[in-house]
């Protein structure tokens, strides 16, 4: 079976075609942002200011890396728990954000915003930061440098493995996957 490689930023068509449970490899450009960066973006919007990164079609990776050793683009770089970004995600999705990469459950508000905007929520393997760092070829801080690991990084990724856990129709793998193995 050939690898299902998906280009990022995500096109509307690709987002629509992805279905819950699909194991995909993301290639292209994404942005990292976690708690503190989301709070700042939310404050910027409240003040009527522009966001430091474009949302339209883009994918945010909920991740704060460990520092890079010399000669490497990044340190350990696995996903953080997405639920802490639930308060901010619907607004960003309404501004055109088309994908999120993280781990763990989301609220109904996020699910509604995913469906409303034809977006996708991916899970990367939590706690596999060393492995996932191999898929990040370039990393550059593009906003909120003072936040250290919580700064927004622009990331060039090559075949970053991820599972579609919520598709654009709102199907949620976390709700269905456990049933089969329950005893």
């Amino acid at each position: 079976m050939s690898k299902n490689i998906v280009k990022v930023p995500l096109s509307k068509e690709d987002a629509k075609s992805l279905k819950v449970g699909d194991y995909v490899y993301l290639t292209g450009t994404i942005y990292s942002a976690r708690d503190a960066a989301h709070k700042r973006m939310s404050e910027a919007l409240a003040k009527g200011e522009a966001l430091p990164i474009e949302m339209q079609g883009n994918v945010i990776y909920y991740m704060g890396p460990s520092p890079a050793r010399e000669g490497r683009p990044i340190g350990s770089a696995g996903p953080t728990t997405s639920g802490r970004m639930d308060a901010y995600a619907p607004t960003l999705l309404d501004l055109g954000l088309r994908g999120m990469i993280g781990k763990g459950k989301r609220t109904n508000e996020v699910k509604d915003a995913v469906v409303r905007n034809g977006a996708v929520y991916f899970a990367a393997v939590g706690g596999a930061g060393a492995l996932l760092s191999h898929c990040i070829k370039k990393a550059q801080v593009v906003a909120y440098d003072d936040l250290g690991p919580e700064a927004i990084h622009k990331l060039e990724v090559e075949e970053l493995p991820a599972v579609v856990v919520m598709d654009s129709e709102g199907n949620d793998l976390y709700l269905t996957a456990t049933e089969k193995y329950k005893r």
Binding site: M63, G64, P65, S66, R69, R72, G75, S76, A77, G78, T80, V125, G126, G127, A128, G129, A130, L131, L132, S133, H134, P149, P161
Partner: peptide, 20 residues
Amino acid sequence: SLSENLEIAGKEMIPICQDT
């Protein structure tokens, strides 16, 4: 993936998880 991750972490000195 987790086993592979452990191997890479030890060999290349990249923390097992970014949340150290």
